[in-house]
Design a protein around this nucleic acid. Structure first.
Lengths: 134, 134
DNA sequence: CGGGATCCCGATAGATACTG
DNA sequence: CAGTATCTATCGGGATCCCG
């Protein structure tokens, strides 16, 4: 059993760590924001409501599965609302909630940071890449 | 070949879309921020420099591989600096750069948003989950 | 039109073991 | 102590088919 000690210690550490992560709202929402499609959907909806097919056209590279999946999770989180109009061909509209709009603002802040520091990062990368191995 | 048309169309769309993504600094940095370990490392280093082993202890659930990988990419991006002290047991310190500190600030903003809206999201989720299927 | 269900694959996180 | 190398399990995500 002595050989498992280290692994088990880390296991326990991870358990505590996981609890921390779960308890921490930041990380919960961080991986929501981080999701590639989430930011695109939120940005796409920021100007106003859109239909499903409009979204899939505007976002272009997304598969129906991921679009639906993203929309559902965002709906669940109260980021947007889904409105079904039972016309002959069903019509579904998606629209940001106030919460969603505030998320859009946060994403804007991230975007601003990214844009204002992008060249710095870029230069750092080039410098790093030209370094000799040692 | 006619059967591939739809897929190929989407493929081309994805290609253009990918180009857009690559050109857009926001997305580049967004998936940096979004990375689970990045936020933890940056937060850990915010108060001051730390050694490799200190980091691995403080962050707890991380494997050496991921820690190194994360540290390297952050170093490359100019978020932190790596200082090697060739003592008898080698000593390596990691420290945030000014750029890294500004990233820490951004993460704080994200954290603030997350904390102030977490209960909203939580309520939305509960509401959503209690909805009957239809 | 707007999805749900299913299968499948490539990427990647993480464990483990070894090295300077 | 500070990593590196390798292998595997997991999973996001795309393709496809089908339903309401």
């Amino acid at each position: 059993m002595a050989t498992m000690t280290a692994a088990q210690k880390r296991d326990r550490a991870r358990a505590e760590y996981d609890a921390f992560i779960k308890a921490c709202p930041t990380n919960q929402l961080l991986d929501r924001i981080s999701d590639k499609w989430v930011s695109l959907v939120v940005s796409a909806l920021a100007p106003g409501p859109m239909r499903y097919s409009d979204l899939s056209r505007k976002i272009a590279g997304v598969s129906p599965k991921m679009l639906t999946q993203t929309l559902r999770s965002l709906e669940r989180d109260g980021i947007l609302v889904r409105t079904v109009t039972p016309s002959v061909p069903v019509r579904v509209d998606y629209e940001l909630t106030p919460l969603g709009s505030s998320l859009a603002l946060l994403l804007t802040a991230v975007k601003d940071w990214a844009e204002s520091h992008f060249d710095e990062v870029h230069r750092a990368r080039e410098l790093y890449d030209t370094q000799p191995a040692g």
